[in-house]
Simulated scan of single mutants.
Amino acid sequence: MNVLWYYAIAFIVIWVLALLFKDKLKIDINGPLLMRRTGRMRDLIDRIAQKSPRFWRIFMNIGIPVAVFFMAYTFYLIILASTMIFQAPQVVPILPGVDYPGNPLFLPLGYGLIGLVTVIIVHEFAHGILARVEGVKIKSIGVLLFTIIPGAFVEPDEEEVKKVSRLAKLRIYAAGSIFNLSLAAIALGILYILSSFFIPAAFHSEGITVTSVVPKSPSDGILKEGMIIYNINGQDIKNITEYAQLRNNTKIGDILTFKTNQGTFTIKTLPNPNNSTLAYAGFRSADNLVLNKGVSNTYGDIIPWILFYLKELFTWIGILNLAVGTINLLPIKPLDGGLIFEELLGYKLSKETVRPIVNTISYVLIAILVVNIVYGIGRGILLSI
């Protein structure tokens, strides 16, 4: 079954239950948004904040210029993307488990959901911790659902936030993204260690595995997820690097013959949805890993594969926290980046001058993002028909 059907079924089930048990579970329904507030976890946030408030202030004093750097860099990337919207959309939403033509990245369902949970929890708890460090009361904590997209929130008292110093506000606003970027750095560091030392010592590659097939692509209905490809057009393929070299030399309209563990299959390449000058087969792949001799005898079969799955998990935790952390720093209100930008301008300019500047930049960036997303998804849907 297409993953989108699972999303649709989950949407119906969750919203029916929310409507039926709205009062009992104390769920607020605001248009497409479900929210459930609670006072729980506030004590935990208080304990973390008060254990070492000086550390958190120093950490965020370092984090503020980091946040400003990523704000400027992400702003530059979005402006650059605006010049290439109709060549290839640079900003495309990615749902866990959903693949379509033109989607530059496929996010596996399980890893994606776990990664998004880490993004949300770390981000919101960070705001809560720094709010309490600065003496701001937390009104509520809760979980939310925007149509089918889960989330969480920590709601500081806005009136108390207004009363703290400008530097304290910057610490609170920057905390979410800085914690996301910090977790991304930790995850990618662990990934580097696993990929550089443990995985090569435990595994070697024999061919490539088809990890997913893009719907309505040349490979759709021919190749299948889980197939192992050993040879393409008479050339042995030992790993993903060798496949990438062959793919780079493939032209539009070329016939590719795949020898796999499930038989021999042939496809004809088409223009790539992201770049019409490149050939496109329409499947994603990874190294087909096999345990090295002697590894099973020493460590068994389970431990090496646990390390492999941890590598995959930390890959997506790192990527998602990096992506969300940086995008959230765009100078767009009400994103954290917009709030930081507004406070920075407020050091030298009056509120009457700051407000139109921030609003104008917000509208321009939102327009660029919307055009990218609508064009990217629309083109993907048209290619899937």
Rank of each mutant, 00 (worst) to 15 (best):
I222Y: 03
N239M: 10
Q235D: 13
N249L: 14
G189Q: 00
I208Q: 01
G207D: 06
G221N: 09
I222N: 01
T250S: 10
A201G: 12
L188Y: 05
S219T: 02
N239S: 12
P215F: 06
D220Q: 09
I255E: 15
G226Q: 04
G253M: 04
V210L: 04
E225Q: 12
L191F: 12
I237G: 01
D254M: 10
P218E: 08
Q235R: 15
S217Y: 01
T211F: 07
G226I: 05
K224V: 01
N231F: 07
T257H: 10
F203T: 07
Y230T: 11
S196Q: 04
G189K: 00
S217K: 00
I208G: 03
Q235T: 14
I199S: 04
P215L: 07
L256F: 02
G234T: 11
G207L: 04
T257C: 10
I229D: 05
G253L: 04
L256T: 04
I240W: 09
N248L: 13
L246S: 13
G221V: 09
K238I: 13
I252K: 01
S212Q: 12
L188E: 01
R247I: 08
K224P: 00
E225C: 03
L246G: 10
P200N: 06
I199H: 09
A202I: 12
D254R: 08
D220K: 06
P200H: 02
E242H: 10
N231K: 15
G253S: 04
G234P: 08
A244S: 13
F198E: 04
T241K: 15
V214Q: 03
P218T: 09
I255V: 15
I228S: 00
Q235L: 13
Q235I: 13
I222R: 00
D254S: 12
T241S: 15
A244Y: 09
A201N: 12
K251W: 06
I252T: 02
L194K: 01
G221A: 10
I222H: 01
L188T: 03
G253E: 01
L246F: 15
G221H: 09
T241W: 11
A202E: 11
A244L: 12
K238E: 13
I240Q: 12
I252D: 03
A201W: 06
D254P: 05
E206N: 11
S219M: 04
K251V: 08
K251G: 10
T211W: 08
L256D: 04
L223S: 01
S212A: 13
D220F: 11
Y192V: 07
S195Y: 01
S205R: 08
I208C: 05
P218V: 09
T257I: 15
T209K: 13
F198C: 04
P200L: 04
F197A: 11
P218I: 10
M227K: 03
I193V: 14
I255C: 07
T257E: 14
I208M: 05
T257A: 11
K216R: 11
R247Y: 15
I229Y: 06
F197I: 15
I190H: 01
I252Q: 01
T250Y: 07
V214M: 08
K238C: 07
F203G: 02
I240M: 13
L246K: 14
D236Y: 11
T250M: 08
Y230I: 10
